[in-house]
């Protein structure tokens, strides 16, 4: 019996699901090993007898809570794919202002008379609602990390995310440090596993893979001081993908 996989989308851009469809021959190989029984974005069949569920997107409405609880009940293994599902991601930016204000900004002054209609709650990652076995952070998730996870599950092996900062991969890639280019980079405290793709492309790290388990905050502060920056500067940057941490404290 091939293991049955299911993919479910909550609030997000569906980019992580798209990453699964972005494989070429790997997808054909994968389909020899597993059955995909539920993947609304790509298939019509809707099977409810899955063992491993992948969640794309975060929880941002009341109605999504019973839905994720139902999936949790069925799935032996629940995997949060991408920054929205695993960290809260950009969705959590809405948590920094009153809901009424966001409503007015998007739908105009009359919208607030109809707040009863908008089923919206502060955005949160999946683990804030139900327990999660594995997380694949990143915006979007790294599809090769997804493949590594699936292989580990098929072999019954434990899957671990790297627990060192992006700086390690960035040095290996031979990049000029983004701080030396005058940018604020979150690489020193962000979990590696992306091959420092943003810095390698001339940018900086926005922290989309979340914090490493024991971030070396002293060293980050030192770097900040050296470049005339404050903790406040970096927290503001961290908010783009990790605002949930700030608010949930």
């Amino acid at each position: 019996m091939k293991p049955k996989l299911a993919f479910f989308d909550f609030t997000g851009c569906e980019g992580c699901e798209l990453e699964v469809l972005n494989f070429e021959t790997e997808l054909v190989e994968l389909l020899k090993q597993v059955d995909i029984v539920n993947f609304r974005e790509a298939i019509t069949e809707k099977g409810e007898d899955y063992e491993i569920a992948f969640i794309d997107g975060g929880i941002t409405s009341e109605s999504e809570i019973p839905r994720i609880e139902g999936i949790r009940k069925q799935a032996k293994i629940l995997v949060a794919m991408g920054a929205c599902a695993s960290l809260g991601g950009v969705n959590c930016l809405k948590n920094f202002r009153p809901m009424e204000e966001s409503l007015k900004i998007v739908c105009g002054d009359t919208a607030c008379d109809y707040t009863w209609y908008y089923d919206t709650i502060p955005a949160r990652p999946v683990k804030a609602v139900v327990p999660v076995e594995y997380e694949l952070p990143g915006c979007p998730m790294n599809r090769y990390e997804f493949l590594r996870l699936v292989k580990s599950l098929l072999l019954g092996k434990r899957f671990e995310l790297p627990n060192y900062p992006v700086c390690v991969e960035c040095k290996l890639a031979g990049n000029v440090c983004a701080f030396d280019r005058g940018e604020i980079c979150l690489g020193p405290v962000t979990r590696a596993g992306c091959n420092a793709i943003c810095i390698s492309n001339g940018r900086r790290c926005w922290g989309c893979r979340g914090l490493v388990d024991d971030p070396n905050t002293d060293s980050e502060k030192e770097i900040l001081q050296k470049h005339g920056l404050t903790v406040g500067d970096i927290l503001r940057q961290f908010r783009i993908f990790n605002g949930y941490l700030e608010v949930s404290k």
Binding site: F10, T11, T60, S61, E64, V90, N91, L93, K94, R97, E101, S102, L103, I105, V106, Y118, D119, T120, I240
Partner: peptide
């Protein structure tokens, strides 16, 4: 689900 992107962008 509404995401309120335009509100999120404000102040950035």
């Amino acid at each position: 689900s509404q995401r309120f992107i335009e509100a999120m962008m404000r102040g950035e």
